[in-house]
């Protein structure tokens, strides 16, 4: 891509060019943590329903209190099931000659842009499969990248191997230019 989308002029450094922009595959998917979350959330909601049923027999409106737990359980369960897909559909990735950008647009949180500098010491991992994933692990990172809601990674890429190659090329160029200094 040679013509940057409007708005990118102020973000890019001089002589930095956009190489690729794309989104993770938006079809339904979930992460292992999501399954745990869904199981927990729905059991929480189920227990709330049982409690409400029991309390309803006592008469009065005390049973309504269980509604909070039911709502929370349903929210946690549904997020566990559909959260990953929702996040994927609201995430945009960009690769420039110097950096990698992860942009999200989420309700209440608004637009967020995270940048990862393709320094020579940046560790780049590839999870190869039908929809490859590329992870960026910065030196001294203590948080596992997989545990963030929006990880420092390019998830579910349709042509991941090619993009992996492009990223590695950009990093190699950075390395060469830093040696030249």
């Amino acid at each position: 891509m040679t013509d940057p989308a409007p708005g990118w002029e102020s973000i890019l450094r001089p002589e930095e060019t956009l190489i690729w922009q794309g989104q993770p595959d938006g079809s339904f998917s979930f992460r292992p943590q999501g399954i745990l979350m869904a199981v927990f959330g729905f059991s929480f909601a189920f227990i709330a329903v049982i409690w409400m049923q029991g309390t309803m027999r006592l008469g009065g409106y005390f049973w309504i209190l269980g509604g909070f737990h039911l709502a929370i359980g349903l929210c946690v369960g549904l997020w566990g099931l559909f959260g990953a897909t929702f996040l994927n559909r609201h995430t945009w990735y960009s690769l420039t000659s110097e950096r990698v950008f992860i942009a999200t647009e989420l309700p209440f949180l608004g637009r967020r842009l995270r940048e990862i500098d393709l320094t020579p010491s940046l560790r780049i991992d590839l999870i190869d499969g039908p929809l490859p994933e590329i992870r960026f692990v910065q030196e001294g990172t203590v948080v596992s990248p997989a545990n963030k809601a929006v990880p420092d990674a390019f998830l579910r890429l349709a042509d991941g191997l090619r993009i992996y190659g492009e990223i590695r090329k950009a990093q190699a160029n950075r390395r060469q230019s830093s040696r030249g200094l």
């Binding site: 020579p120 940046l122 560790r123 780049i124 991992d125 590839l126 999870i127 190869d128 499969g129 390395r175």
Partner: peptide, 13 residues
């Protein structure tokens, strides 16, 4: 399923 490939860069540091 799938293969995980870690790429640890070797720099002077």
């Amino acid at each position: 399923g799938g293969v995980e490939l870690q790429g640890w860069p070797i720099t002077e540091e």
